[in-house]
Write a protein that binds this DNA or RNA. Structure first.
Length: 617
DNA sequence: TATGCAACA
DNA sequence: TATAATGTTGCATAG
């Protein structure tokens, strides 16, 4: 038995590493006593984060409580692996920091499914996010184990990740290669592996107490664990990538980026990714640049370059001037590099052995509770089908995308009790257009499509908390026109302003934290308290999506789900049953929110995701 | 690491 | 009283 000791909050804790079967028997004895006393914290160390890659391996499984940690050398196989597995399936109270990862690891590498583990799991990261959802950059503690431990357990809690990076470097590994390369019995590796479970075990009761002190509803905690499980199931399923399409696409886009990069070089721009170079060269060509970034540099983003290239927002010729060839080359080179590098190329490099992409779905990522997804799957270009064309439904399946209809406007109507908006949603039926309704409400029968556009801008302005200037910029209308429209909007829906003031006042009285309809804590920035309207809407929309996901599981349709995208659920469904399943998904996403109907519309595509964006396959 | 940019809801 | 655009992931560059 290897035994290591370390001070945690003034207590000497022991990290035990069984080597012989006698040692493993000791572990077993400890485990039986520990699980009588309460939940047991677990964690895994692996060769990397790419759980579904062919080279991924599980190295250790750790178990622990507040005073002892046991690092089981799973990689040794034999008794080590079977003791770890037997222990895992016997636990009826499990603490994990960021459970999704370990659920998937143990499912993939130890044959213990997340369905076995999830019912017994408390995720300390979820508890932390419900106490304070802000990232460190936003003034919060964040949800990483190290800063949380420093705050709640021991200010001197070791930085196990950072500490290991140093050890990796000293052994000739990098931060990336170290996890796979470090010898299994390296003492620092084992110590830190063990300390992580001790810290998790100590963190849990502190966060529980804090949640109780803050009066966070226990139902919300349960709900978030359910959502985390559903997201993990979708992550485990992954998405099929059309490799025969994506690989040549990545090459073609790389060539295109190179070609336009070479043209830019003729004008002295050796790196199109350097805004300073682009600005200097454009100025030398006599183009007057005026927009500035927050830091004061000249802006050369898409909004600046498109007009210089005589292109509108959809990259169509305007015919107002001679296109600047450098602006055009920079636009083309950057778009091709972005689409090729961030999407097509990345799809290929992140593939599992089965040719699938398992993007990490973080169920509680944003401070509003919104989810986030890695590998760009929330950000694929929607103006063109070329990238989404690379993502496929299963063989014999078609893609079905089901969107909530104007969910943030509906949520706003429901939360702020906006009478006339609610009436519109209630009486409007399935194809109801809130922005056309608003235009007609204000302008009467002579409302034009342009009026609709202006009031749509005003509506988004309300949901986002935007001002006249921004709405004008976004819609392309004049500030005077927008000022008038916003004033009319406020007269038509006076409840919104009143709700905003009320919510801000409530937040002030609660230490600058607004409590959402579901009991979620939404901290406000003191100088941007107006953002409360957006936070309330965004977070309620997230909870509506979460409820829809629970409904979908209850209806037995979870296996078809692939990806949540804020107000949309992407699914792969058998072609023959597509119409029926699509209708069922719509039904699961349809609900009532304080008297406002939340409705969804399913679109049935072809084999690829791109087929829902105009691709013919 | 900070900044700028580009992609989305 | 008037006023404030929200939330992400990921890449390249520059120091």
């Amino acid at each position: 038995m290897i035994e290591l000791r370390h001070d945690v909050a003034g207590d000497l804790v022991t990290v035990h590493v069984p080597e012989t079967t006698e040692d493993l028997a000791e572990f077993w004895k400890w485990l039986y006593r520990a699980r009588e006393r309460g939940p047991v914290a677990i964690d895994t160390e692996t060769t990397g984060l790419d759980v579904f890659s062919p080279v991924f391996r599980l190295r250790t499984v750790q178990f622990g409580d507040a005073s002892d940690a046991w690092v089981i050398l799973y990689e040794r196989g034999g008794y080590h692996a079977s003791y770890a597995r037997d222990a895992l399936i016997r636990l009826r109270g499990i603490l994990i920091h960021n459970a999704s990862f370990d659920w998937l690891v143990l499912g993939q590498s130890a044959g213990i499914s997340l369905e076995d583990l999830a019912p017994w799991t408390t995720d300390t990261r979820i508890l932390a996010a419900l106490c304070d959802p802000r990232q460190p950059q936003e003034g919060g503690t964040g949800t990483a184990l190290k800063p949380l431990s420093a705050k709640w357990v021991d200010p001197a809690a070791p930085d196990t990740q950072g500490g290991l990076t140093k050890v990796f470097n000293s052994l000739g590994f990098t931060k990336e290669t170290g996890w796979a390369g470090i010898p299994l019995t390296n003492p620092t590796f084992l110590l830190y592996a063990g300390l992580d479970v001790v810290l998790t075990a100590r963190l849990a009761p502190m966060l529980r107490r804090e949640l109780a002190r803050l009066d966070v509803r226990p139902e919300l905690v349960t709900y978030e664990h359910e959502i985390a499980r559903l997201c993990a199931v979708m992550q485990r399923t992954g998405l099929l990538v059309d490799q025969d399409y994506a690989a040549p696409l990545a090459r073609r886009l790389a060539e295109e980026a190179e070609k336009h990069g070479a043209i830019a070089a003729r004008y002295g721009v050796t790196s199109v990714g350097s805004p300073a170079q682009v600005a200097e060269a454009l100025a030398a060509m006599g183009e007057p640049l005026t927009d500035r970034t927050n830091a004061g540099a000249l802006k050369v983003d898409k909004h600046v370059l498109l007009p210089l290239a005589d292109l509108d927002r959809d990259w169509q010729r305007i015919g107002a001037r001679t296109p600047n060839p450098l602006a055009y080359a920079v636009l083309r080179a950057k778009r091709a590099a972005k689409w090729g590098g961030t999407y097509a190329e990345r799809f290929m490099t992140k593939l599992s052995a089965a040719g699938r992409l398992h993007a990490t779905i973080s169920p509680l990522a944003a401070r509003t509770g919104r989810m986030s997804v890695t590998d760009g799957l929330h950000q694929l270009p929607s103006s063109d089908h070329v990238i989404r064309r690379a993502i496929l439904a299963e063989p014999g399946h078609v893609m079905v995308s089901t969107d909530f209809q104007a969910v943030e406007m509906r949520v706003l109507a429901a939360l702020a009790k906006v009478r006339r908006m609610t009436e519109g949603f209630v009486n409007g039926g399935d194809e109801f257009d809130i922005h056309a309704y608003t235009a007609k409400l204000i302008k009467g029968g002579k409302a034009t499509p342009r009026d609709r556009k202006v009031f749509k801008g005003a509506g988004f302005g309300k949901v986002y908390g935007g001002g006249i200037q921004t709405i004008a910029r976004q819609t392309g209308a004049t500030e005077a026109e927008i000022a008038q429209a916003v004033a009319a909007y406020d007269r038509a829906f006076p409840e919104i302003k009143r709700a905003s003031s009320r919510w801000q006042r409530q937040a002030y009285q609660n230490g600058m934290v607004f409590i959402s309809a579901t009991g979620r804590r939404l901290p406000l920035d003191r100088d941007r308290s107006y953002a409360v309207v957006n936070y309330a809407c965004q977070s309620a929309a997230r909870d509506v999506l979460g409820q829809a996901m629970l409904n979908i599981e209850a209806a037995g349709l979870l296996e078809y789900c692939r990806l949540p995208i804020h107000d949309e659920l992407l699914a792969s469904v058998p072609k023959r049953e597509a119409a029926d399943i699509a209708r069922e998904i719509e039904r699961c996403m349809t609900m009532d929110l304080y008297g406002v109907p939340i409705v969804a519309h399913a679109e049935i595509g072809g084999r690829s995701w791109g087929s829902l964006y105009g691709a013919d396959y």
